[in-house]
Nucleic acid binder design. Structure first.
Length: 641
RNA sequence: GCUGAUGUAGCUCAGCUGGUAGAGCACGUCCUUGGUAAGGACGAGGUCACGGGUUCGAGUCCCGUCAUCAGCUCCA
């Protein structure tokens, strides 16, 4: 007998060799029917795989993540089988489940190309194979056998994978006429896959290394019910409607034109209002938190970046230096060295610290052409940058303050973020500075994160070359992850720039630098903001044009009255010019009711307004003056008076 | 940078296997109008991304460049 522990901690005894299916049956027939697999001690098990030892067991259905992973991983196998039938001679790489679906990396026979037009045919074949109800059967072989098998069949990819498993038993999975090297974790049979949608086809380097051959990656998703697929498609379409590139164009927030340059966004009047609003919001916070604003040039002497070490590290992704007589200048790819020069301006005392220098600094990085994307990834962007120069004793407090500020930003906009502690990995040439100091810096970051109760994960290899950081990551409408806010600890630059302060002991010391940017990049942040609100911004960020229909006989009086009162409240409000025409006309013919528009929602300080009327965002229907005034009175304006 | 796809009026797009461009919305003028993306008439708008090539003839086929999109790689 073995002891099986369930997720709710209950323990029951079963005969050794019991399968997850039998366990599920013993709980309920429905569970057994819905079970697609099991999680046994954290490992994905087929439902009919014998369990031999005391184990923690969770029955997996499509409703939980493990079940989905098994379902989609099995679907990847099914797609491979279909590909093998349609394109004989295809070599298979790896085919894992991902967050939404699965992919398979394949090396197609020579002269064969797959484009999105070919996907429906593959889908059909998959459905046809699925209907055969083939079981997924696992089998074992020795390492040598497996190695021989793939060497003979000429699949260098599987050979490479097997080489990485040297000395271990190799498992295969077979269904229908398809056998694949596989660790396991499949659904019982192909018949469970009822709905299939292949999403896209793209290139992907073998093992994610750009030196390797590029394989063809086919993405897909499957469901046990057609209805689930339909829901998925609707969700995707809704997400696409929020895409900031689409909304940014429709709302005339920004433009990008090759006449100026790819990845160089131009802020249009309406987008500029939003951006200024965000800047004002943050500036106000910065002043309260003891930051001082500075302004530095957009270019700097190349030597500056040689000193910082950025130049050799990132020479690939920088605009070429500008040569003027004997000097070379670079468009600044970051603000740090400029701020360090401000620190180095004069002798600093411990009494001056922490020194917090802030700047909305525009930087230029020559990102790879294939990387550019709307406002998310650009070649010129503005960081809400600041560098805090402090003593080692002050470090933790300053880190906490910086993290809190970042949290305030995301809280204000109601954005969901994940927090990553970005640490270094083992590779030595990627990082500058003393590994022991790194160790200390990472420890300090972790302590701060724990002290603040942050819900974080650790990303090894995600650090900057000069130090570890805390990154705040959000998702865009289509689910892609982007780093926004960042707080970084840096012991390297103070050394390189020989920054010092005089301590109370009358000795010179090195300060520690915190690099931090709560928004990260104004461009990227706004891209997320647009999608977050689906263009329907709160009034304090972007005023909307509202159409208001006065009811009653004295519409002119109504308009005048409303305008006056809104102005008294501090809002800009005016009759829309087009409606004014209608209004005038109707006045001439002595009509009683007219539709007209006011533009409102903007405090008097700004000279422009954003019209979002076309999206119906500001369409408030018929309102009495009291209702409208109440609405504006209730506007919550973070950072406002 | 790599793989694949796309690039036609301000926007969204149509244009079959080559015979020199269309629609809806938007825009302008006029008319109509007591209702939430108002209706009608007329009008203006395009060296079909750019540059080569094949052809009697290219938006349509081929090559190159640029840009955009999906993904990979990268991201101070």
């Amino acid at each position: 007998m073995i002891k099986i522990t369930f997720p709710d901690e209950t323990v029951r005894e079963f005969n050794s060799g019991v399968t997850a299916y039998e366990i599920a049956m013993s709980i309920s027939e429905g569970l057994a029917r819905n079970a697609v697999g099991a999680v046994v001690n954290g490992e994905h098990y087929e439902i009919n795989r014998p369990i031999l030892e005391n184990s923690n067991v969770k029955i997996a259905t499509f409703n939980d993540d493990d079940g989905k992973q098994m379902f989609w991983h099995s679907s990847a196998h099914l797609m491979a089988e279909a590909l093998q039938e349609i394109y004989p001679g295809t070599k298979f790489g790896i085919g894992p489940a991902i967050e939404n679906g699965f992919y398979y990396d394949v090396d197609l026979p020579e002269d064969t190309k797959i484009s999105s037009e070919d996907l429906p045919a593959i889908e059909l074949k998959m459905k046809e194979l699925a209907r055969k109800n083939s079981t997924y059967d696992m089998s074992e072989s020795s390492w040598d056998e497996a190695y021989q098998y793939y060497t003979k069949s000429g699949n260098e990819y599987k050979v490479e994978l097997i080489e990485g498993l040297k000395g271990q038993k190799i498992t295969f999975c077979k269904h229908g006429n398809f056998t694949d090297l596989c660790r396991g974790g499949h659904i019982p049979n192909t018949g469970l896959i009822k709905a299939v949608k292949l999403l896209s086809v793209a290139g992907a380097y073998w093992r994610g290394n750009s030196d390797n051959k590029m394989m063809t990656r086919i993405y897909g998703i499957t469901f046990p019910k057609q209805k689930l697929l339909e829901e998925f498609i609707v969700l995707r379409e809704e997400a696409e409607r929020r895409d900031h590139r689409k909304l940014g164009k429709e709302l005339e927030l920004y433009m990008i034109t090759p006449n100026i340059g790819g990845g160089l966004p131009v802020w249009l009047p309406k987008g500029t209002i939003i951006r200024r609003k965000l800047e004002d919001f943050l500036k106000k916070e910065l002043l309260q938190r003891g930051y001082q604003e500075v302004i530095t040039p957009h270019i700097g002497n190349l030597n500056l970046y040689k000193t910082s070490g950025h130049y050799p590290y990132y020479s690939e992704s920088q605009f070429s230096p500008i040569k003027v007589e004997e000097e070379e200048y670079m468009l600044k790819p970051m603000n740090c060295p400029h701020h360090h020069q401000i620190y180095a301006l004069k002798p600093r005392s411990y009494r001056d610290l922490p020194l917090r220098l802030a700047e909305f600094g525009t930087v230029y990085r020559y990102e790879q052409s294939g990387e550019l994307s709307g406002l998310s990834r650009v070649r010129g962007f503005t960081q809400d940058d600041a560098h805090i120069y402090c003593t080692h004793e002050q470090l933790k407090d300053e880190l906490i303050n910086a993290v809190e500020l970042t949290q305030l930003v995301f809280r204000t906009f109601g954005m969901e973020v994940t927090t990553r502690l970005s640490f270094r990995d083992d590779s030595e040439d990627k990082y500058a500075g003393d590994p022991e100091v790194w160790e200390i810096a990472q420890k300090e970051i972790k302590e701060v994160a724990d002290m603040m109760g942050l819900d974080y994960f650790i990303g090894l290899g995600e650090a900057s070359f000069y130090g570890p950081k805390i990154d705040f990551i959000v998702r865009d409408a289509i689910g892609r992850k982007w780093q926004l806010g960042t707080v970084q600890v840096d012991y390297v630059m103070p050394e390189r720039f020989e920054l010092e302060f005089m301590g109370s002991d009358n000795q010179k010391h090195r300060p520690v630098i915190i690099h931090r940017a709560p928004f990260g990049s104004m461009e990227r942040f706004i891209s997320i903001l647009i999608e977050h609100y689906a263009g329907n911004f709160p009034f304090w960020i972007a005023p909307v044009q509202v159409s208001i229909l006065p009811i009653g006989q004295n519409q002119n009086e109504y308009c005048e009255n409303l305008l006056k009162q809104l102005k008294d409240l501090g809002y800009r409000a005016e009759i829309d010019t087009r409606s004014e025409k209608v209004n005038r006309k109707i006045a001439e013919s002595e009509q009683m009711k007219v539709p007209f528009s006011i533009i409102a929602g903007q405090k008097e300080v700004d000279s422009n307004t954003v019209s979002l009327r076309r999206h119906g965002v500001g369409d408030l229907g018929s309102k009495s003056i009291e209702e409208i005034l109440n609405m504006f009175a209730e506007l919550n304006i973070p950072g406002g008076e």
